[in-house]
Design a protein around this nucleic acid. Structure first.
Lengths: 230, 230
DNA sequence: CACTGTCAAGAGCGGTGCTCTCGTTTTGTG
DNA sequence: CACAAAACGAGAGCACCGCTCTTGACAGTG
């Protein structure tokens, strides 16, 4: 596919990104299922049926937005990790970067981590971008382990065989060598992180830990210790 | 309000619960925002406008369903806690009861813990039923503390003053006396619990910890220890 | 030039939440 | 008992939605 592919190709690419941009705007105001193809088309000065030349259905547009959102938060996490050198600092930075991104893009966050869209089923293309965050977390723990700053969790309960097996699958998939118990703890911290962010965004913390800044920062520290990054 | 309140009153109550039941059915198949007043009315053999005699809007119907869902999961947690005697066993039972309820009623779960409905704003009536689960968890930790089976978390990072203040507000609201650090850890475990359940329901664990039974059970044990219930 | 594929536009289908009106039925009270 | 008031179901209608199909204009290629 050479670059001289004509005005038609370029126009198509431009309009496609324009649709995505406008859809993201609508997403930010109307929410995940408030996304209206007609409204997007209206804003772009075209008629709704014309959008179907670029996206075969509303769900396909949503899929693209979901993949973009996964990549956005994943890249945010990776950039935050790259800015720090110590494993402990990297873990902290990743957690706060994810929270910051979630607070800055709440609708995109709930698009990927909130309720599944009613009839929508995630295609296979989403799993790779979706794994960028947990991979970044696991790599960070591995860095700490390789640097010797990782301390084995004391007197932790034993892992059942099936869980060990799942942990090993994760280990090979991520490509880092870590004790099974540490991998599991990392995944526990992973769920804690997103549980906390989700609760903050959905207002579950109102009346207890709202505003959540200090609670979040403290929880990150606790979970940092929990995974062994002292 | 005496019981002799007439046929009209009884009919109204019956129809109201019939609407709620049918709405819950539709919720289980079509999802949170797939709930259609017209479909509910059609199924009940009436016309859509008649529903507005019972619920002023779709959001009001949703609010009732949300409150019911909060009470359902809260009661599930409380019953599970009542079945066990030891604090550790109670904690475990509550966690598993919540997961079981979530897996049995995924749409009701995502109705209350998933993405906020686009234009929907939670009224004040929801916060009391919503707090039944965290209150049950806090009471359980308090039981363990009162029984002397609660061990102070070792070498935990200090709490900043603002967080101490929030912890004390929670303590007085729940009505249990607990060290601030323990309250905060309980809330961390609370977010971990729902983060894990949410991830399982939204399929985020596919490819790593799916099926999640062993992972969940192990995480519960770890968090049991984390809050000090050895 | 003629042909082929791409495009925007429009009309239309069945669906949605919601409002208003219109008779009817039930209720509480004078 | 009679009568006004309240509650009710039905229907039409408004503006919106995703999506499909057809039509006519345009660009690139043999």
């Amino acid at each position: 596919m050479p670059a001289h592919r004509t005005a038609r190709e370029r126009a198509r690419a431009e309009i496609t990104t324009a649709i995505k941009e406008e859809a993201r705007n609508q997403l930010a105001t109307a929410g995940a299922d408030g996304l209206s193809l007609r409204a997007v088309a209206r804003q772009l000065g075209m008629v709704s049926s014309a959008l179907y030349r670029y996206f075969p259905s509303r769900d396909d547009l949503l899929t693209v937005l979901i993949i973009d959102a996964y990549n956005a938060v994943g890249e945010q996490a990776e950039r935050a990790a790259a800015r720090e050198s110590g494993a402990r600092e990297r873990w902290r930075a990743i957690c706060h970067a994810i929270r910051d991104w979630a607070r800055a893009h709440p609708h995109e966050y709930s698009l990927i981590y909130g309720s599944p869209i009613p009839g929508y089923r995630a295609p296979q293309d989403t799993i790779t971008p979706a794994s960028r965050v947990p991979v970044a977390l696991a790599r960070t723990v591995h860095d700490g382990w390789a640097a010797g700053t990782l301390t084995e969790s004391p007197s932790a309960p034993d892992l059942p065989p099936g869980l060990r097996e799942q942990a090993r699958v994760v280990t090979t998939a991520v490509g880092v060598a870590l004790p099974d118990a540490v991998v599991v703890r990392t995944l526990i911290a992973w769920t804690q992180l997103f549980g906390m962010v989700g609760f903050e965004l959905t207002g579950q913390l109102v009346g207890s830990m709202d505003p959540a800044d200090e609670f979040f920062a403290h929880a990150v520290e606790e979970m940092t210790r929990f995974v062994g990054l002292t």
